[in-house]
Design a binder for these strands. Structure first.
Lengths: 116, 116
DNA sequence: GCCTTACTACACTACTTAGTTATATAACCA
DNA sequence: TGGTTATATAACTAAGTAGTGTAGTAAGGC
């Protein structure tokens, strides 16, 4: 595992199971059993995924009798989003180009009329 | 490698070398040799990283004589950023809480005066 | 045609990862 | 105490990843 925080964050959310777990936690705390339910996977597998998320700082764990509820921790996601922000200008640029391209097509359409 | 696009994107940017490559490409096209320069790594290693980025759709490659310039493609980053947006409310929430906490501390300070 | 430059593919190694089953711990419940 | 529920750990396997060195391809310069 890479040692820097950004790498840990991105590699944690690079797994669809873990992203689904985070999505579930977005609507509140959940126990391991609850989190495991939607998946065709054994409990230890889920336990491991939670460990990865916890190590990456994306969740924290509580203790309530024999339950160990997991809670979303958004701070590392904020850092990751901040990294991505630097590239926003590039994808908005592409949108502008696409937009412009579509406008041009429309203009052409108009110029040529429906005579095709 | 996971098969879905989001996983491919996140796992591609989960590596510091690859993130550095993207950062370099943000200031324009570059050849493999140029991209390799800052790293203590052989050319094949860089070539592989570029392959990963290309497969993930984060860059595209051109051809200029014996050079294969790489160019940033931001669309998958946009998708990834869109996924993260769902969690924005959580990290802003934490900020609000911190903010509120600090306000409360200030109020306390005022109430007690500088008699500490 | 031959050398050089730029890059890629191949074969290999060391390490990591995602899952499994089986076992252990921990807390409640009677 | 002994049983049940919830979760974690250990040991293992299969597959993926990041790097290496070596060799191959592709294009321009002479």
């Amino acid at each position: 595992m890479a040692t820097d925080r950004l790498s840990a964050t991105f590699s944690a959310i690079a797994d669809p199971t873990r992203r689904a777990i985070l999505a579930r936690l977005a609507s509140g705390e959940a126990t391991v059993t609850e989190l495991a339910k939607p998946f065709d996977m054994t409990m230890p597998a889920i336990s491991k995924h939670l460990k990865v998320l916890e190590t990456a700082g994306l969740i924290s764990r509580g203790r309530d009798a024999q339950w160990r509820p997991a809670r979303l921790e958004a701070d590392r996601l904020r850092e990751a989003a901040k990294w991505m922000e630097r590239y926003r200008v590039f994808w908005e640029q592409s949108f502008d180009r696409l937009d412009q391209h579509l406008r041009e097509l429309q203009r052409e359409e108009k110029r040529h009329g429906r005579g095709k």
